[in-house]
């Protein structure tokens, strides 16, 4: 039969969802136990966390392998493809909202809470009676609040590594798009080259990000403890970094799948999903570069 969906497709039973729920629980339980560990704890929580995390990796591997095999056997019709596409789009939307919470926090703190602590608007009394010495500002001088939580620190200069990282991520978006066009034209060699470049650029980004963190901790005294500046800086860039890591892993998987000839000109949802994700991560970085580093 062709790819018309004059009949519906319902996938076979699978134990992966149940396994997924169980290993997610194991990971979370281990993490919670670990965070609450008293000094001299046996390390039970950490062990459970490790077991859960390995389980999650194994689950992803197993579940995706079974889906890839089903896809290769030609059982998925165009309706299934559309469902997958919608699933990925809405997943990315949920990720947008997740970052939205942290950007919202950043904007609120910069627009309202820090100026109020400095006596602006209805914060006048708080300022006068609690912290009359505090001159509200963002960045190195006031970003860790009136109590100077974490001690004085310097900020990361926007026009050094962050600019380089911006250029790297932007180029990686170009290379992944070239790879996509090559896929549609059926040039496998070209896909492998440009997709490979995308993976390398992603890895390079992460490498520079790691350098930046090390420098922030060792030389700038900019840490998670550096008041709300450090908190927003590390949580925003940290969650973004996690997403780049995930995206790089996904791109590598796709690279191997291209090598094995999994994709055709018409059928390459896996590739496109990862490409969308990569562009999403790129856009988040542009917002970060603008609002965390430059402004």
């Amino acid at each position: 039969m062709g790819q018309q969906h004059d009949a519906y497709f319902v996938p076979t039973k699978s134990f992966w969802p149940f396994v997924a729920a169980a290993v997610m629980f194991t990971t979370m339980f281990g993490a919670a136990h670990w965070l609450n560990a008293e000094p001299g704890d046996s390390g039970f929580g950490r062990t459970v966390l490790a077991v859960g995390a390995i389980g999650v990796l194994g689950m992803f591997f197993g579940w995706f392998r079974s889906v890839i095999n089903e896809s290769l056997s030609g059982r998925y019709n165009s309706q299934v493809d559309t469902s997958f596409r919608m699933g990925m789009m809405w997943f990315i939307f949920s990720e947008v909202m997740f970052f939205g919470a942290f950007f919202g926090a950043l904007f609120y703190i910069r627009m309202f809470s820090v100026p109020w602590l400095g006596g602006e608007g209805h914060g006048a009394l708080t300022h006068q009676f609690l912290w009359s010495n505090y001159a509200a500002s963002w960045g190195a001088d006031g970003g860790n609040g009136p109590a100077h939580v974490g001690g004085s620190f310097s900020t990361v200069a926007a026009w050094g590594l962050p600019l380089l990282n911006t250029l790297i991520l932007l180029s990686s978006s170009v290379t992944v798009t070239i790879a996509h066009h090559a896929l549609r034209a059926g040039h496998r060699g070209k896909i492998l080259v440009f997709l490979g470049m995308t993976v390398l650029l992603g890895a390079l980004f992460l490498n520079f990000q790691a350098h930046e963190y090390i420098e922030a901790y060792r030389e700038l005294n900019l840490t998670l403890h550096s008041g709300v500046y450090g908190a927003t800086f590390f949580l925003l860039t940290g969650f973004h970094g996690l997403h780049v890591t995930l995206g790089t892993i996904m791109l590598s998987v796709i690279w191997f799948r291209v090598l094995k000839g999994h994709f055709s000109k018409e059928h390459h949802f896996g590739f496109e999903a990862v490409a969308w994700y990569w562009h999403f991560v790129d856009v988040v970085w542009l917002c970060l570069f603008m609002f965390v580093y430059i402004l």
């Binding site: 926090a105 860790n144 008041g227 709300v228 500046y229």
Partner: peptide, 12 residues
Amino acid sequence: GTSFFNPGGGGD
């Protein structure tokens, strides 16, 4: 040790 909700650290 973050300060999102700690006014001393600039949070709220």
